[in-house]
Amino acid sequence: MTITTGLVVANIYYNQPLLTDIALNFKVSNSKAGQVSMFTQIGYAAGLLFIVPLADMLKRKRLMIIDFALIIISLLGVALSKSIHLLYFASFLVGLTSVIPQLLIPMVAHLANPHERGKKIGFVMSGLLIGILLSRTISGFVGAHFGWRSIFYAAAAVMFILWGLVYWLLPEIEPTYKGKYSHLMKSLVHLFMSEPKLRLASFRGALLFAGFSAFWSTLAFLLKLPQFNEGSDVAGAFGLVGAFGALAVGFMGRLTDKMDAFKLSTFTILLVIISFIIFYFSSHSIAGLIIGVIIMDMGVQSTHISNQAIIFSLNAEARNRINTIYMVSYFIGGSAGTFLASQIWGLYQWSGVCAIGTILSVIVLCVHLVNRKKMQQNTTASVA
């Protein structure tokens, strides 16, 4: 489950180190190329909203098998795109279909004992984070040596192999929801309105991921400037740096089971704020960018695990729908951060991107502190 999660989620992030190459290939501006990443994230949010809830009413494994076929078609569509608009559409489809990790993570929460839920989620999330970060490293290297389209052909082949492994090895889980799809979708609204802790976790996740996406979607543009003059391979190599932060995520998951989640989240949100301050003063420093990436990834992903431990303790029978609400919010935030950064880059470049990340993470910290009582009630519920 961890391996599948890491390899499938990578599909969403392959394009980020390649955006300057895509801009040159299609003879468009960096801002227009940046929208490739935005459309992928919008597609992912749409897949979370319309596909993931089906796991509460359909057999999980059967749903994944169908989805894998669609992922392969979408990746080939990206590799074969002849115009930037076709690439936008194919990238949207890649995001739409690459939702299998969000079918597996609630399964982990379902199978884990309550007192180990944070630890188990943290283990799978470590695989997911490594997949996200190493996808940039691999695609940057492949793009620099074989062209940006090559990674998508390779990804389609990997998905075909995973398709077979999931079919043969993954156990089936029977659905718990017996109603209609329309009623299932309406229940999302009810869950969102009736669970203030879910709304708070969704808000925190969305804004932090917006800043995270703003950074990663413009890093290749920064590294292309004269003070660095580096290509997609170096932009992708920063994924290796971020992978060090992933090593801490499993540890943070265990801490979520043992200590006050409010205090832990306060610390992890502060890490994100500090990282963007470091980024601001590192527009000419590779070393500063490396330090900032490690700190930012630790902060964002650890807060994400804390959020998930909270939401998965709310309603065991609706975990897929709860995860849908949280992750749709998360990736709406990510796509908004990507779009905002691509627009701000044209006006203020790196300082504007750092300002976006700092402002968003400070807002998260303020909302987090104001809602202290709700968060600590959540901690009590999770331990119980």
Rank of each mutant, 00 (worst) to 15 (best):
M1L: 14
G6A: 14
A10S: 15
Q16D: 09
T20E: 09
S31D: 08
K32H: 14
S37L: 05
M38K: 00
F50E: 02
I51Q: 02
I51R: 00
L54G: 00
I65N: 10
F68Q: 04
L76W: 11
G77H: 01
A79L: 02
K82G: 13
A90L: 05
T97H: 08
I100M: 04
Q102T: 11
V108P: 03
H110K: 13
P114L: 08
R117V: 09
V124R: 03
I138D: 07
Y153D: 09
A154T: 14
A154V: 15
V158C: 12
I161E: 09
T176M: 08
K178C: 09
G179H: 03
Y181W: 12
M185T: 07
P196H: 03
A201G: 10
G205V: 07
A210K: 00
L222K: 00
L223S: 04
L223T: 04
Q227R: 11
E230V: 12
S232L: 03
F238C: 02
F238S: 01
L240H: 08
L247A: 10
L247K: 06
V249R: 01
V249K: 01
L270E: 07
F279I: 06
F281M: 05
S282K: 01
S285H: 03
L289K: 04
I290V: 15
I294T: 02
V300M: 04
I305E: 04
Y330Q: 06
G346P: 03
L347Y: 14
L347V: 13
V353T: 03
T358L: 06
H368K: 02
H368E: 05
K373Q: 14
T379R: 01
S382Q: 12
S382F: 14
A384Q: 11
